[in-house]
Write a protein that binds this DNA or RNA. Structure first.
Lengths: 118, 118
DNA sequence: TGGTCAATTCAAGTTTTCTTGAATAGTTGA
DNA sequence: TCAACTATTCAAGAAAACTTGAATTGACCA
């Protein structure tokens, strides 16, 4: 993931409404959720939702597909994953302390990340 | 980590100059680097640097300490770690696909994170 | 083919963030 | 104390992001 894409993704995440969208859509998996249903669930005006969904999609964090009149949005797990990886690997250079600090629930798991290559 | 702190941290990370700062300071460890030296290294005007350092410190991603006339800035690994954790655990609810995608170098390591609670 | 529905685009205004040069505060050494 | 040095704060302007209502596009159905 290059610099500018990572930056776009981080900017996309740095907004309350868009974090709400990620939070809502992640459990929905690949099927995702129609824009109208999202708007209703979160109580957002349509243009505002469209704006934020588009920002997330541009940033590679969401996918969309049309079904009849509806547009279903779903999270792109690899987009989020690559963004996190950019911060950890590129910016923090796999610093062990940082890696240790971001794995509360899997203590030490990421600490080995410097030892293997994909 | 609560919502507003995570948001502040993500906003802080969503800026090119500030990612440069993290990238520069992480390898320096606890000792960190004096503001003047940072400014020289990155070619930034002093007020601009101060502005961004302050943003990062406010967000809990950097620490600072005074030594004589200098102010040394260093990364707070736990601040970055908690921010990442917030995205993975809270927003993505430990979604396995997301976790798998953000561990290029430690495949599957984070996948166990859903099994334990803090 | 006319009406309805879902979603996006547009335009305007507001708010927030960022940058810059000038001014300020605090520290050190002569 | 005075000058030099380090860093921050201030003020102003510029740029970017966000929200809102109105208008538009495209798909579906009677």
């Amino acid at each position: 993931m290059d610099r500018s894409k990572a930056l776009a993704a981080l900017s996309a995440l740095a907004h309350e409404t868009r974090l709400d969208l990620i939070r809502l859509l992640t459990p929905q998996g690949d099927e995702g959720m129609a824009a109208g249903q999202i708007a209703e669930t979160l109580g957002l005006a349509a243009p505002r939702l469209s704006f934020h969904l588009s920002a997330l999609e541009q940033a590679g964090l969401l996918r969309s597909r049309k079904v009849a009149r509806n547009v279903f949005y779903s999270v792109d797990p690899s987009g989020i994953g690559r963004t996190i990886s950019y911060v950890l690997n590129d910016c923090c250079r796999d610093n062990p302390e940082v890696l240790a600090a971001c794995t509360h629930k899997a203590q030490g798991a990421l600490a080995v990340s410097g030892t293997e290559k994909t």
